[in-house]
């Protein structure tokens, strides 16, 4: 019995060692303080644990990064690194991750996610989506909310420093709108533009826009 067990354990060990040899050409490094590790490796070995492989996260605590605008990602990672972005989830999760990233690694991470294919979000209530689409494309004239599309693009794909919002988790969009509306935690860089927009958006309107964007491909 014991010999059989030992054989099984050793067999599993040998199998794993074999896998290790197959793996030898691919980096498996999760060191966040090694500037020689590429952004691509960090994205797969570290970021994927929360943001999903390819940047399509499952839990809405973590934003989807697939297809995100590189300039936006670079600005956010540098803001985490310098602690100028201090929303609660941001500092709890991202300050530590970003603390030793080099500019080169940040650029490589941004390019990696730009090259990933976004997975469309789940379908949302059709009524909410229709209302959200109207706000996204036309704004809310009565309260002076500008059309989101004027900066984020007609499909919500973003450009340059304006982030891609299409297929983003609706809960993440809602939380960020709340951060912009109620705090100065993201009052840095391009984020300064969002505070007055979010301030004039009601809770219902925010939910409608988030539902529309999360359901977009």
């Amino acid at each position: 019995m014991n010999k059989a067990i030992l054989s099984a354990v050793l067999g599993a060990a040998l199998l794993a060692t074999g896998c290790s040899n197959l793996q030898s050409n691919t980096a498996s490094i999760r060191d966040l303080n090694d500037p020689s590790v590429s952004g691509h490796v960090l994205a797969e070995q570290v970021c994927s644990m929360c943001h999903g492989v390819g940047g399509n996260s499952i839990n809405p605590t973590f934003p989807r990064l697939a297809g995100q605008q590189p300039a936006y990602l670079v600005e956010q990672l540098k803001a985490f690194r310098s602690h100028s972005r201090s929303d609660v989830a941001g500092y709890q999760y991202m300050w530590g991750i970003a603390r030793s990233l080099t500019d080169k690694q940040i650029d490589e991470l941004a390019q990696y996610y730009k090259g990933q294919i976004p997975v469309p979000g789940p379908a949302r209530n059709a009524g909410l989506v229709a209302q959200g689409k109207a706000i996204f494309l036309n704004g809310v004239e009565a309260t002076g909310v500008p059309a989101c599309a004027s900066c984020h693009g007609p499909q919500g794909y973003g450009h340059d420093g304006f982030p891609r919002l299409a297929s983003q988790h609706d809960n993440y969009i809602l939380k960020q709108l709340s951060v912009f509306k109620h705090t100065n935690d993201r009052y840095t860089g391009m984020g300064t533009m969002m505070s007055p927009v979010a301030y004039n958006l009601s809770g219902d309107q925010a939910r409608e826009v988030a539902a529309y964007l999360s359901s977009q491909p």
């Binding site: 966040l32 500092y91 709890q92 999760y93 300050w95 530590g96």
Partner: peptide, 18 residues
């Protein structure tokens, strides 16, 4: 600060609830 807590939190720089 949030990064100055036990062993693994010091290593990752993250909050315990991560």
């Amino acid at each position: 600060d949030a990064a100055a807590v036990p062993l693994f939190a010091r290593q990752t720089g993250q909050n315990c609830q991560a």
